[in-house]
């Protein structure tokens, strides 16, 4: 078990702790994101955070915190515009995320020289998780996990049957808003480790795999979380041992498992 010694390294410990926390909440939320067919929403937030990263870099404060601010604003903007205009949700997300992405690119272009921080946000980096970042990730993840446990029934009912949710006095608008913001914040938390381009994959791949195997809703949630944790731990180790980008390696592990499960489902009788 010599390879486990890599977790003696402080930066690996931080990456592992951040990864385990994210492996808990990203797939958990992903169950509802896939059920509600909101995968594009997750992708949109991730790309929109580039504007926050750029603002942070230019203004000289934490790009991570700036990205969190942009993520929260993105969620609120989509929520409000969906209700106040007759524009479809995917069109809104498309406009907002490309606009935000464009703003980020323009702002970055105003900065001269190489921007290592930018690259770490784009592709994720186990080296980039500082102690401050870790604290933010752990605190937010704990709060989000507790909220998810408290609202899991309402979120499921909302995703399956809005009319009945309304009849049973579920506060649909408030819960929708909370859900949007939870997804936004969770995605931004994952950007440090997985990167803007790949973070939403950890939202989608674990529940998609679990959905193929789970006999019930409870096992779907457990299966998603376990899959997410396995991908993170295995991906982190491989990325360190093989000197590969962490985010891409984690997602690649997930994609390979997905292909294996999908292939086995096609070959084996159900």
């Amino acid at each position: 078990m010599e390879f486990l010694a890599i977790f003696d390294l402080p930066f690996m410990q931080r990456a592992l702790m951040a990864g385990v926390a994210l492996g808990l909440i990203l797939p958990f939320l992903g169950v509802f994101v896939t059920l509600r067919r909101m995968s594009f929403f997750g992708d949109g937030i991730a790309h929109a955070t580039l504007a926050g990263v750029a603002i942070g870099i230019i203004a000289g404060f934490s790009p991570f915190i700036a990205a969190l601010g942009i993520g929260v604003l993105f969620g609120a903007a989509v929520f409000l515009l969906e209700r106040k205009t007759n524009i479809s949700s995917d069109a809104l997300i498309g406009v907002l995320f490309t606009g935000s992405l464009a703003l980020g690119i323009v702002l970055i272009s105003l900065q001269h020289g190489y921007q290592p921080e930018l690259l770490s946000f784009l592709f994720g980096s186990i080296l980039s998780v500082s102690s401050q970042d870790l604290s933010i990730i752990l605190v937010f993840s704990a709060v989000i996990f507790v909220i998810l446990l408290k609202l899991v029934r309402q979120f499921t009912l909302l995703a399956l049957d809005k009319d009945t949710a309304w009849l049973y006095k579920v506060r649909i608008e408030l819960l929708d808003f909370i859900f949007y913001e939870l997804v936004c914040v969770t995605i931004v938390l994952g950007v440090k480790l997985l990167g803007i381009i790949l973070v939403s994959a950890l939202l989608i791949i674990p529940p998609t795999i679990a959905k193929m195997l789970a006999p019930s809703f409870k096992t779907l949630i457990f299966g998603s979380v376990i899959a997410g944790e396995v991908f993170i731990v295995v991906g982190l180790m491989l990325s360190y041992l093989l000197d590969l980008p962490s985010g891409a390696t984690i997602i690649l592990v997930g994609a390979v498992v997905f292909l294996l499960v999908a292939a086995s489902r096609m070959v084996l009788p159900s």
Binding site: L35, R153, T156, L157, L160, D161, D163, T164, W166, L167, Y168, K169, K211, A214, P215, S216, F217, K218, T219, L220
Partner: peptide, 29 residues
């Protein structure tokens, strides 16, 4: 009057591949 009325829709549309048991479905509401 919500909570005192119930409704059975004409067609209940949902993702049929979604793994939720009848018991879980009923316990949601």
């Amino acid at each position: 009057a919500r909570g005192e009325v119930a409704y059975v829709p004409q067609r209940f549309t949902f993702d049929k591949t979604f793994p939720i048991t009848v018991l879980e479905f009923l316990q949601l509401s």
